[in-house]
Amino acid sequence: MTGTGETAERALTPPPGYRFAGTVRELAMGAHDPCARLVDGRFWWSTRTPDGPGTLCLRPAGPRLLATGYGPGGAWLVDRADAVAGLRDDPTGFLPLAAGHPVVARLAHTFAGLRMPATGLIFPRLLRAVFEQKVTGTEAFRAYAATVRRFGSPAPGPVPRLWTPPVPAEVAAAPYWVFHPFGVEQRRADTLRRAAAEADRLERCADAAEATRRLVAIPGIGPWTAAEVVRTAYGDPDAVSVGDFHIPNMVSWALAAEPRGDDARMLTLLEPFRGHRGRVCVLLAAGGLHAPKFGPRMPIRSFARF
């Protein structure tokens, strides 16, 4: 824990029915993310900003949402706290599209208060996404948490055991074998190091489209990783994670009662919602409309033992 002095505070006004926990939970990799924590109704999120490391605290207070920043980057985070909280997300144009399918229409009504956050930062989400490539969630979290603790630093603010993500340049300079004890094979380690070397250029992208083009130009990063990143960094409601193991099945099951589907089938079913295809996937997941499971689970491996 570093300095606890508050640098800025701001009161936000969420829309009626706003789902605070469901919205900000998208910014954390589970309940034990070293960089994000939802405790006693308050969401704590630490990251690196253009002004330096900072921690943002979001807490509901009656009809308001209070944002407090800590550390050198605290004021930067408070300035865009409404985007981080998903309050710049406007689903109005989605509602006529949702009405065209009964399942989507029901979910749009049930989860009307769910918003899509937009952090404005690429590398923190890219760090997670690279580790999530083609492995189980347990393997991905283990690698992500170990990397944050190896290369990151204690977060500004009053929360103990909260970490600020790594400086990209330090990750880029590390040899691939440093990540091996974290369960990361050379392919993902090299991808992360290449992405970290491009982090400054990526952070200057004007929008999700430019960021996607630059991301997929990096060897080892494809449409899935790019979509996972821009959906969070820019709040892109149309970002679809093509290449995901589960999402095509979920979409096929929920929208067409087909227990299995490939990427082509998923995109066909999502086409009527173009502009908000990623939002549909978020709603399907929020509604728990997952496809039936067949066969054994993917085993958890440890490359550190190989």
Rank of each mutant, 00 (worst) to 15 (best):
G3Q: 13
D262H: 06
V178M: 02
E228V: 03
P259D: 07
V184T: 04
A226S: 14
F141S: 06
G54W: 00
L114I: 08
V130A: 13
H180D: 05
L107I: 09
L121F: 07
T68V: 15
L77R: 06
A257R: 15
R231C: 14
H180G: 03
G235E: 07
P63M: 06
G220Q: 11
R10Y: 09
A8K: 07
F306T: 13
V135A: 08
E185D: 06
P175H: 02
T268V: 12
A195S: 14
A21E: 15
F179E: 00
A173H: 02
F141T: 05
A209C: 08
Q133N: 04
T110E: 15
A105C: 10
A108I: 09
A196R: 04
A140F: 02
R142E: 01
G275I: 11
T232M: 15
G54A: 01
G157E: 03
A155Q: 01
V103E: 13
P96D: 09
D190S: 10
D89S: 15
D263K: 09
R279F: 15
R301T: 08
F306I: 12
T92Y: 06
V167R: 02
L97S: 12
T225H: 07
R128C: 06
L58S: 03
E258A: 15
G41V: 07
D89Y: 15
A172H: 05
G22H: 02
T110F: 07
G183W: 06
P156F: 12
L77D: 05
I247T: 14
A81H: 11
T2S: 14
R193M: 07
P292Y: 10
A199M: 11
V171D: 00
V148Q: 00
R88F: 08
E258Q: 15
C57K: 00
V159E: 08
G183A: 06
T92N: 05
A206P: 00
T47M: 08
L77A: 10
R277H: 11
G86T: 04
E228D: 10
P175I: 02
P14R: 08
I218F: 03
P16F: 10
A174T: 01
L162A: 01
D82K: 10
R193V: 02
A83F: 09
F94D: 12
P60Y: 00
V159G: 05
V159S: 03
P102E: 14
A21I: 01
P16M: 09
R265C: 09
M116Q: 15
T47C: 12
E9G: 15
F94W: 11
G295L: 01
L87A: 13
L114Y: 13
W224Y: 03
V251Y: 05
I300L: 10
T7R: 11
P63D: 12
G220W: 07
R10T: 13
T23Q: 06
A75T: 14
G222E: 04
A85H: 11
